[in-house]
Each structure stands twice: as structure tokens, then as C-alpha cells.
Nucleic acid binder design. Sequence first.
DNA 1: CACAATACGTCAGCTTTGTTGACATTCCAA
DNA 2: TTGGAATGTCAACAAAGCTGACGTATTGTG
Lengths: 168, 168
Amino acid sequence: MAQSGQPTMGQSLLFLTDEQVRIGIEAMFFAYRGFTADPDRILATKAYGRAHHRAVHFIHRSPGTTVNNLLAILGVTKQSLNRVLRSLIADGLVSSTVGKADKRERHLHLTDAGAALERELSDAQRDRMRSAYRAAGPEAVAGFREVLEAMMDEEMRHHYRAMKDRPE
Amino acid sequence: MAQSGQPTMGQSLLFLTDEQVRIGIEAMFFAYRGFTADPDRILATKAYGRAHHRAVHFIHRSPGTTVNNLLAILGVTKQSLNRVLRSLIADGLVSSTVGKADKRERHLHLTDAGAALERELSDAQRDRMRSAYRAAGPEAVAGFREVLEAMMDEEMRHHYRAMKDRPE
DNA sequence: CACAATACGTCAGCTTTGTTGACATTCCAA
DNA sequence: TTGGAATGTCAACAAAGCTGACGTATTGTG
């Protein structure tokens, strides 16, 4: 379909061919493996998995967030998240406090131990991302983020932008 | 963004800050969800999962590939791959033929039905990737691929490059 | 030739992480 | 005040990853 070779406008559309798009798909597949490899290695030595990493990451980013909000960001069922949260709470990495205004809600925070785990996992992942950034350079990074953002579902893009503009 | 600060050297390094790197990590997380969303939706209506999609994709890309080779590309155990392959073969989507030169090997091919499934899944995924490409533009796409490639493990990068340079 | 190594398949059992269903608690609005 | 919506928890199950052990056919080597 997009296989045409004649740029009729002032700009070539060759980067939209099936071939080029396919390369992007495979790049995504292989890169995501690298993206998760380092934290996964650390998690394997503890009794946790990737789901715990995600929960800890976003609780760190949004302290006091509710279970429902976390659900929307992670895009899993509440039962699935609950299992993860339960073990993190039992192990003293996350605290859950009943909401003051709305007692149905639980507000989630990292404990000191939870913050330590978050840092350990994030450091490993950040190191790889940073070295990829460095290898590719600032302009490539800008393009990287543009394409990723365009690849998201509308709802995820909303969460992404909200988090992006919040200070660390 | 990374261009805005005061470069003390010839080039600004602001794009390597923890903050910028963290944004990339979150972009990767949210984008991967979009990346798999469309094929997942289709697969949910059939009796297959993401693992089947991956197998079918790479058999399509490397017709006649051996089980061992597929194992290296997918990075799973043979027991895990075998479960997937067994169902695909039983359902007549993949054929497995004894190697001619080395009879220990099995060469894998898609049947017509397998190729049809592959196309259905890939079309959905390609559409999204193409629209992300279009929205971001050719220069962004180049950067996108550079960063992803730099993010891969050495071995995955090897597979990626080998597949990239092979015609469709 | 004898024997080690390779390629593949399979059984059994476990873990992580997703799912649906049922249910308790809390809030809010008719 | 009461019934429905929202929030969160528990139980049971499925997909797909993992390790370990073993069997079989084939290949390559000392």
C-alpha cells in the first residue's frame, strides 16, 4: 500500500513504506527487551516481578495516589494490581492509608524501604536509557520521544503528558 | 528542551539529566502498551496470545528458520516456545519439516492460513506504527530508531541488524 | 567404531501476572 | 433513608514464562 516510490509532494514518503514500518516494529520488540532486562535481573533475586517494579515506580512518581488512579495508569485489572500491592504492603515497602475525605479510597506511599527498592531498580534502568541517549544524541532523543508519544493510545498519552510535566 | 540551556562546552548535556531520562522510560512504558494493543485485541477473539503473534511474525520474516534460531530471536526457553509451536502446528498455521542437510533440525514455514493470520495481526500493528511515523515525521523516525537500537542488548542488536537488512 | 555433542520434543511442576466473579464498605443522590 | 455507584478485597482460574530431567534421533570426532 504505502509502497509507492514517487514523492509527488516536496517531501519523500519513503519512510512510510511497509518495509520501514516493519523495521520500527522489530526495533520496538528488541528494544523493549533491553529496556526491562536490568530491572528484571535485580527483581529475579528478590521475590518480586516486573509488575511490582511498575507499581513502585508510579507510587514514587505520584505519592498519595489512590488504587483507582494507579489502575488507570497501569492499565491492568484492580485484582491484578491488588495482589502486587498486597505483597508490597505486607513486606513494608508501601503504606496504604484510608482516605480522609473519602474513606473508600486508599492513599499509597512508599516507605523508606520501598523508596530504596525503587531507587535500585530505577538506577539500573536509567543507566541503560542514559547510555542509549548519549549514544544517539539529543536530536535523536527528541525524535524518539515524538514517535513514542504518537504511538500511545489517547488515554495513555494523557497520563504520559500529565506525568511528564510534573517535577521529579 | 535539551537545546535550551547554557552549553558550557560545545554541546548541552541537559538531555541526559535524570528528569529527561525518566521521561523516556515512561514514554517507553506507555508506548509499548499502544504497540501491542491492536494485535492483542484481535488475538483475544481467537485462542492465541502475544506469544503466538511473535512466533508467527518471525517465522514469516525468516521462512524455513529452525526452532533453535527462533529460540535465539525470541529469547524464551524451548519449553515455552514449544507449547506455542505445538498449538500452531496442530491448528495448521505452521508447518514443520525435517531438515534436508541436518535431519535433527525442523524447518518452520507458515501455511496459507498462518500467513493470513500473520497479515491480519501485522496490518493492525503496522497501521498504528505508520500513523505514528506520519505524525512524527522522517527525522523523528530516524532518531526513534537510533535510540531503540542503542537500547538493545548486544545479542538482540545483532538479530535486529540481520533482519533489518533482509528484504521483506 | 564408539562416544560425546547437538537439535528437538516432552513431562512435571513452579512463578508471575493477567483474567472474571463474588462481596464488603462507603458515599451520594433521589 | 434507601438504593445504586464507586472503591477496594478475596477466590479461583488461565496464559506464558521458568527450571530440571529425560528420551530420541542425528551428527561430528577422537
